[in-house]
Design a protein around this nucleic acid. Sequence first.
DNA 1: CGGAATCCCACGAGATACTG
DNA 2: CAGTATCTCGTGGGATTCCG
Lengths: 137, 137
Amino acid sequence: MKLAKAQIAQFSAICEALSDEDDDLKRGILAHAGNRWSLGVVYTLGTRGTLRHAELIRALPKITQRMLTLTLRRLERDGLISRHDYQQKTPHPRVEYGLTTLGESMLLNMLPLWNWIIENSAAFRQSRDDFAARELG
Amino acid sequence: MKLAKAQIAQFSAICEALSDEDDDLKRGILAHAGNRWSLGVVYTLGTRGTLRHAELIRALPKITQRMLTLTLRRLERDGLISRHDYQQKTPHPRVEYGLTTLGESMLLNMLPLWNWIIENSAAFRQSRDDFAARELG
DNA sequence: CGGAATCCCACGAGATACTG
DNA sequence: CAGTATCTCGTGGGATTCCG
């Protein structure tokens, strides 16, 4: 396979955009894709709708309460989720989180990459094994 | 906007796949998307073809020699780039790097996410400013 | 030229305990 | 319930020096 000229042009435009003065901001957004919990939170809110803190904890059994809070803050800061505090103290505090339109669009635009990874996971495994073997031999 | 049922089903399948026993491997691949230099290296090799170590240094002015080596190793380990050592010592060593077919397909599957980030960068900036303002007020 | 070795810092992340 | 507050660790990443 070889990249077509039109594709190369598109990549050039994108790379230029990714290298401008807002570099840090854009890579910060991209970081959500690689974070340990962001995907799980966004996916859960996207498929199940608005949820409370404790419901998210139950939906993601291995997350710690601290990491959930941190992840939610970062996603909220970047406009991917919304936080609604009912300001209620009795019988319990009530805070709900939901995906924003921006968050939903992120989910949709992550699809190609996710599918690509899943489709090629066997190749990745093979490649890592080969690489490890080469390092020994 | 609301996610369609068909989309939710697709997300469910993907999330299940992303949560299986190969979780670490797949998230490791996803990490390339968030790494500081992986995108630049993959993009450069994709648009300019096979390049030597020193040529990549010149193409990415701000990268250090150490980070280039580390990035190349990780990409090679996962089968995204290939390394060809000509085993030549005079007049100079000669090692060339190029994108594999897998690497090219990654580039193509990253496009939607990149475009999404670029299209919405103003919204991210706005969201971060609002968030910072809320923290103060 | 193509690295490896060493030192350093920042930050994501886990574990645990505490609070209004 | 919905968080903070600490502590610790691992790793990405930068700077610098050295080598065949």
